[in-house]
Amino acid sequence: MQRTIRLQLKPSDQEALALSQTIERYTWSFNAVCKYGWDSNLTNGVELHKATYYEHRLETSLPSQLVCAARVKAAEALKSAASLRKKGKIVGCPASNHCPIRYDARSCTVWFDRQELTILALGGRIKLSFEVAQYYRQYLTWKNTSADLMRDRKGRWWLHIVMETDTPKVEPTNQVVGVDLGIATPAVDSNGNKYGSDHWKKVEDRTFELRRRLQSKGTKSAKRHLKKISGKQKRFRKDCDHVLSKCLVQSVESGATLVFEDLTNIRGRAKMRKAQRRRLHAWSFAQFQAFVTYKAERKGVNIEFVDPRYTSQKCNQCGHIERGNRPTQADFRCKKCGFECHADYNASMNIRDDFLKLWAAVNQPIVSADNPG
């Protein structure tokens, strides 16, 4: 189980200059390895090391550990690009303008008790002090495994430290809850609970209208405002996803199972009207499910996924599937048996039942002529 804590560093002007030069040369090494691997169709880390290490040491004057770290990061980026290309995606050579420096235990040492650290840079190690936010103090007893140094757009320096501990072992229970994620209603579970707020939708609508007006102007001032809004909108969505995922995980007991639809490639599969497509493309479901997964891990809640086909069109009572079962976005009315309920609640029950059927099929005993029992 891993968590990332963010420490803001406040180096002096001379130290900031050294860090800036280090990250510039580290970025150059990362991009050069990526270009070599891309042109040579090579993703193997050992072969990339043999082909680039000595040249990059001479070119950048970086410590050997940072040259190796840049090569490892480049190899990961190349493998990711190759994997996407095999799936038919259009990808180009990986590149970065400001590649965060990855540190390990040999190149970065942190003392949380006295709030000091040393990190490797051009010319040797730099000693810096920091303060730990109150929320992060719960993770200080965990083991720190790696760290990434980065500089944001405002020129502030941050060290993101990955903390690790053993995942708690919790016995699974019989509680299974299906969760239907939606655009109008963020989430509805099979217990009939609704999650989210109408305020979120209103904020998104106001932001959309403001962006449209600014884009139509096209002035420099409007573009600066659009850039500012973009960051604000991302932070707002992230906060909403944190609130929603926390509520969902807290709604069940340890050992329970939360079941979601597998929404991979949903944007390419879904057929919607123009107004709905805008909300679909703004929907951060992947980020939300990632938040649910890591929050559930700590509590011992299992996360499962099922095929999303027909969960919204199938009647949970009689199993009849028909698009006409949903006369409106919010209502479900079965054409066969007349069952009526909220459409998202019906879908969440189907998600739960689909998982239970799948689980029963996988875990049923094998019956043969020689061993009928």
Rank of each mutant, 00 (worst) to 15 (best):
W38I: 00
W359V: 00
L263T: 12
I119W: 04
P372I: 04
I321Q: 13
M163L: 14
V367L: 12
C315H: 01
L58R: 04
K238H: 15
V91I: 01
T185E: 06
F112S: 09
D152S: 14
E59P: 00
E24G: 04
M349A: 13
S284I: 01
S20N: 05
P172I: 00
R206V: 05
W359R: 13
W142G: 07
R224M: 10
H242N: 09
D331W: 02
N363A: 02
L210W: 04
K227W: 08
S129H: 07
L210M: 11
R298Q: 08
L117H: 06
V46D: 06
K154C: 14
H56Q: 06
K169C: 14
V243T: 10
C68E: 05
I5L: 15
H281R: 13
E209C: 05
S107L: 10
R323C: 00
E55S: 01
A121W: 05
R224P: 04
N41K: 13
A75C: 12
C315E: 05
E209I: 02
Q317M: 09
P365A: 12
F236C: 09
Q364K: 15
K238V: 00
I266Q: 00
I90S: 11
Y36P: 00
E340T: 14
W157Q: 04
C337H: 12
R106G: 07
T264P: 07
T207Q: 12
E171T: 09
A70I: 02
Y139D: 07
N174F: 10
I229L: 11
K50F: 08
K335G: 02
L280Y: 15
S245Y: 04
C240M: 09
T185Y: 06
E304H: 08
S230F: 04
V292I: 08
Q250Y: 03
F339G: 11
G373Y: 15
C318V: 12
D104W: 15
R273C: 14
L122F: 06
Q317P: 00
G324H: 13
S20I: 00
R85G: 03
Q233G: 07
E55R: 02
E55K: 05
L17S: 08
Q138G: 11
E304N: 07
L9P: 10
T165Y: 12
P63V: 04
R326S: 10
L244N: 01
G182R: 01
C34F: 10
N302C: 05
F30H: 01
N193F: 07
F260S: 00
L17I: 00
R267H: 07
S312N: 11
K89C: 12
N302W: 05
E116N: 11
L62K: 02
L122H: 08
V188W: 02
A105R: 15
Q276A: 14
A81M: 12
Y103C: 02
P100G: 10
W142S: 03
E304K: 08
Q175L: 03
L263V: 06
V72T: 03
Y54A: 10
V203H: 13
S230E: 09
D370P: 01
L84W: 10
A282D: 15
P172T: 03
R102Y: 04
N191V: 08
L140F: 14
L181Y: 02
Y345I: 00
T118A: 06
T219E: 02
R269C: 01
K228A: 13
A70Q: 05
K335M: 06
S80H: 14
P11H: 09
E171Y: 12
R206Y: 10
H320F: 13
